[in-house]
Nucleic acid binder design. Structure first.
Lengths: 173, 173
DNA sequence: TCTTACTTTCAGATACTTCTGAAAGTTCGT
DNA sequence: ACGAACTTTCAGAAGTATCTGAAAGTAAGA
């Protein structure tokens, strides 16, 4: 076979496209998700121009989203000796990927929510009986729940893959 | 005191505004989050016009987002006997709220992802050694991880609040 | 059947997000 | 110090999501 455009590439194409679409439901932008999918399945690290061509996106777009992915910790920059340009490669270990995403989502979703709840609870701590008290209690309950969730998340995050699996097996078994 | 605009209302106002802003990070639209916050902290059930006035939103907007919240299962419609109009009230139990959201997010985020992964794995199951095989293995790994996560989520979801707490205490302790 | 009290819909307006491409910036080798 | 190779920035264009308000729809009671 002359130019073996391997047929796994078809599946890969599909994966990239679909993953991008899913990104939207996830609150992640499409291009970012596509770049991530592309790099996750890349046998070798890639540089900006390759990524632009492969996904038909502009330089600015590629650059912005690559930086953002580096910010999330989902991809890293690699410099090859003797080469000027920057290459990128994705973390491929599923557990590590999960931890990275979990940590970031906690930071973005839980931390600010906790702040609001604490503030509202504090502000109403002297309410007597009635609706004011009910409101205070509700804020407290929410606050405790979120704090509890964060603790669970931290515990799981500090586990090695193996021990997390073991723990989960016990839960499911 | 003549017209006791209770001061917990100030905290409530804050809660509604902030919760709305947070909704965005969460992939939920601002109005929907605000209506939810309003109803969560309402001493009594409310009807559309009250909600419109309180949040300064249009009838169309209120109606759409109320329906959507009912769809999520986060609020429910209540009919009062002898009254024509529909009232709404939110689920206030934190654990139930959590379960509802977890279930919905699973359905929206995990289920479609799993479909994509299965498809890609299937399509490449006959790849020999090399990049094709690597791709296949990666899809498989992701698939198994997601399936595993879903199982954990299902298990937790089927728990009563008390037993979930107990289980979590064991994990943290 | 008609009126009244409500709910739903949807076309167009507004606001927000993302993308492009060209220009400016940076860094390295000579 | 200069030019080549690369990266970053950003103003405006394009694309999406959300909201409004008025009109249409529905249902109950007289």
């Amino acid at each position: 076979m002359q130019h073996e455009t391997a047929n796994w590439e078809a599946a890969r194409e599909e994966f990239i496209a679909q993953w991008g679409a899913l990104g939207s439901n996830w609150g992640i932008n499409r291009t970012m998700a596509q770049i991530h999918a592309l790099l996750m399945t890349a046998p070798e690290s890639m540089y900006t121009d390759e990524i632009m061509q492969r996904l038909h996106i502009s330089r600015g777009n590629a650059n912005t989203n690559l930086r953002e992915l580096v910010g999330w910790g989902l991809i890293r920059l690699v410099v090859k000796k003797g080469e000027r340009r920057e290459y990128f490669e994705a973390e491929k270990d599923v557990w590590k990927m999960f931890l990275t995403i979990a940590k970031e989502r906690k930071r973005r979703e839980l931390d600010p929510a906790l702040g609001v709840l604490k503030g509202c609870a504090e502000q109403t701590k002297n309410e007597g009986a009635g609706p004011g008290r009910d409101f205070h209690n509700q804020m407290k309950e929410l606050q405790e729940f979120v704090e509890f969730g964060m603790k669970v998340s931290d515990t799981v995050s500090s586990m090695k893959h193996a021990s997390a699996l073991q723990w989960a097996m016990r839960l499911l078994g």
